[in-house]
């Protein structure tokens, strides 16, 4: 999902944890109690969370770029206002999540630095281009739809600040998905060219959206431990299946065709069975070789560099005002 790169081996130092503390910690998790910032936690739990929450935050921030690309060209004022509000929400999501990660003892500056130097990952989905207005419809419908699938169970994740951030985020996501689907609906009810544009966007976004849930469970290194610690509640494959089951009827309602010749309904299980995912494409995009990886990182680095003078000026201004206030206080004494 937004944290799909978690499925890499944990290379951090192995720490021998105090057995009593570990047992108490795991009993708390088993009892569905939340872990809070100052509570004792195993190093691997802390490390996994910092990585997962910060990847999630980076994804929200980088995710503003493909949609931001269409703000100036939205077809109506109504669509433009909605798109601006959505992109602003994604910025907010990034901030809630950075704040949650910081409660684990890592600084905002460090997290940003990890993103900008390429040490931290973000979701593969944001490395695809938004070529037409229909892509904005597809992102809201599919990408936010997939995000909701993943984020609803995260509202019950074991780390308190993360769960609370997810609750806020989930409340805001529904609007994102609905505005996207409404864009698709308008295109599909429009001219033949508009409908073709909608189909073309679905053809390009469908498989990358399925990849958002991360590698299949059999190849997913972190799933087992994350499930035991209740950081994660469902496996990648479970969430992917849920997403397909929910989304296929929505595509049919639009009169669109899912670009998967193997897709068929399995009446016995009640699931839509889908064809093989091209995991090589996924690996390539995660490794930095997707269509827009370089462009996205350049945009983030440029924004950071061009904002440097603002941060410096704000800090200098605050320091000057503090000094003046202190001097005035001394003079008054």
């Amino acid at each position: 999902m937004y944290t799909q790169a978690l499925n890499q081996a944990d290379t951090g130092p192995k720490v021998i944890e105090d057995a009593d503390k570990l047992a108490r910690f795991e009993a708390k998790i088993d009892a569905e109690e939340r872990i809070e910032p100052n509570d004792w936690m195993p190093e691997a739990y802390r490390r996994t969370l910092v990585r997962q929450i910060s990847q999630h935050a980076h994804s929200e921030i980088v995710g503003m770029l493909p949609e931001g690309n269409w703000i100036t060209r939205a077809p109506t004022l109504r669509r433009k206002a909605a798109l601006i509000a959505k992109v602003q929400d994604e910025g907010g999501h990034g901030l809630y999540l950075y704040a949650a990660a910081e409660t684990l003892g890592v600084s905002r500056e460090e997290l940003i630095d990890q993103l900008l130097t390429g040490r931290a990952k973000y979701s593969s989905i944001f490395n695809y281009p938004t070529l037409t207005w229909a892509d904005i419809g597809c992102i809201g419908w599919l990408v936010d739809g997939a995000a909701i699938m993943n984020q609803i169970p995260l509202c019950r994740t074991s780390y308190g600040p993360y769960a609370r951030a997810m609750i806020r985020i989930c409340k805001e996501e529904s609007f994102h998905q609905r505005q996207g689907y409404e864009i698709m609906l308008a295109l599909c009810r429009g001219s033949a060219e508009q409908k073709a544009m909608a189909q073309d966007a679905l053809d390009r976004w469908w498989w990358p959206a399925l990849m958002m849930f991360g590698p299949p469970d059999a190849q997913s290194v972190h799933t087992e431990q994350s499930m035991r610690w209740k950081i994660k509640r469902f496996t990648n494959d479970q969430l992917r299946q849920q997403f397909v089951d929910a989304t296929v009827p929505q595509a049919h309602y639009l009169g669109l065709t899912i670009p998967d010749p193997d897709l068929r309904y399995d009446a016995a299980s009640g699931h839509w069975r889908f064809g093989a995912i091209d995991w090589e494409e996924f690996r390539q995009v995660l490794a930095g070789n997707g269509p827009c990886n370089r462009e996205r990182m350049e945009a983030r680095r440029r924004a950071h560099e061009e904002g440097a003078w603002v941060r410096e000026a704000a800090l200098a201004h605050a320091a000057k005002r503090r000094a003046r206030a202190a001097a005035a206080k001394i003079a008054a004494e």
């Binding site: 907010g92 901030l95 809630y96 704040a99 910081e102 905002r108 609370r164 605050a318």
Partner: peptide, 19 residues
């Protein structure tokens, strides 16, 4: 409700409002 980063109190209020 959460936290924000800002250089001073006034900007923190502004950031909190937006966030």
């Amino acid at each position: 409700v959460g936290s924000v980063h800002a250089a001073d109190a006034e900007m923190a209020l502004q950031a909190a409002r937006d966030t």
